[in-house]
Design a protein around this nucleic acid. Structure first.
Length: 305
DNA sequence: GTCCAGGATACTG
DNA sequence: CAGTATCATGGA
């Protein structure tokens, strides 16, 4: 991680192939997002480190990210954790050279990689948050998924209010582990989704499930197997979490409806491609399926504007 | 009113 | 073991 602690603010130096504005576009895709806010080309986010709630604001360009603390400057140790979080959130450890190289000769990826050059997979570093978001999003439209997430966060998360705006952190698994199914059904979770989310919270509270343990597995197949062993986590959810939280670039949520729609649009098809057809399109994406998927999602978002 | 949503599981034959 | 029903609600 390349960064400098300037005491009252931080500077982070991303690798090449980075475009802050492209990342901002993705972060700003929903009006209903509650876990960060976009204001005047800056992102504001609240993070809980230990017992402290830390509000920070990111601005920048392709060369540098500058992180400020509008409310209160945290301790040196906390500042380092904020820098670590941002580094992971923007997937800055990843070298995209090879992805861009294989994209050049790819009919599908070529145009979109050029168009959205510098976009990085915006992650969900918190495992519980990643799993909950994936489960909420199963088989419902994204607008409704955001509505459910907002209710969930505002009911069980923590917040601070600063400058007339309220900032939220995602509920902890410790808190959700103590809930009953009806607590989530009240928010219009389905019975099954309520059970899945509470079950996962309990597994994490008892340390049967943790990000550290999953990352130690090192092998993509093993991670996938461990995740799909969890009730409520099928292949799509496992790939989504491996992509957004465990940062494995070969994760491929191939059954994703958004992916299907993006491919249909890019190729001008009159129907969505089949799984088999997608496998053929993706032969040259080997090792980079997660980035291919993320860029295709990005192409879909622009269409919605 | 109809169809489909960033799927997964339980049930059925 | 493969196909089918069910979940539950919103948006187009």
């Amino acid at each position: 991680m390349k960064w400098v602690d300037q005491e009252t603010y931080l500077e982070i130096f991303p690798p090449k192939e980075f475009n802050f504005e492209e990342c901002l576009v993705f972060l700003g895709r929903s009006e209903q997002e509650v876990l960060h806010q976009i204001q005047d080309k800056h992102v504001l986010k609240l993070l809980k480190i230990g017992q402290e709630l830390i509000l920070f604001k990111i601005g920048g360009n392709s060369q540098i990210l500058r992180i400020e603390f509008p409310s209160e400057v945290p301790s040196k140790k906390e500042r380092e954790q904020v820098a670590n979080f941002v580094w992971e959130w923007f997937d800055l450890e990843r070298d995209l050279t090879y992805f861009y190289k294989i994209s050049q000769s790819d009919k599908i990826l070529g145009p979109i990689v050029q168009k959205y050059s510098g976009l990085r997979i915006m992650g969900i570093p918190d495992l519980f948050e990643a799993l909950v978001w994936a489960i909420i999003g199963q088989q419902i439209n994204l607008t409704f998924a955001y509505t459910l997430k907002k209710r969930f966060v505002e009911k069980f998360g923590e917040s601070i209010t600063f400058g007339g705006k309220t900032f939220w952190v995602h509920p902890t698994f410790q808190k959700i582990a103590s809930l009953e199914v009806d607590d989530l059904r009240d928010l219009q979770f389905t019975m099954r989704k309520a059970e899945y989310v509470i079950g996962i919270a309990k597994a994490m509270a008892s340390d049967e499930l943790s990000k550290e343990a999953l990352l130690k597995e090192q092998d993509f197949q093993e991670m996938h197997k461990s995740l799909t062993a969890i009730r409520g986590v099928g292949a799509w959810t496992a790939d989504y979490v491996i992509m957004k939280c465990l940062h494995h670039p070969a994760a491929f949520p191939i059954a994703d409806v958004g992916l299907h729609n993006a491919l249909k649009l890019q190729l001008g098809l009159d129907r969505k491609p089949s799984i088999e057809e997608i496998k053929e399109m993706a032969v040259n994406w080997e090792g980079w399926q997660a980035y291919a998927t993320f860029y295709l999602w990005r192409s879909l978002y622009e269409q919605a504007i």
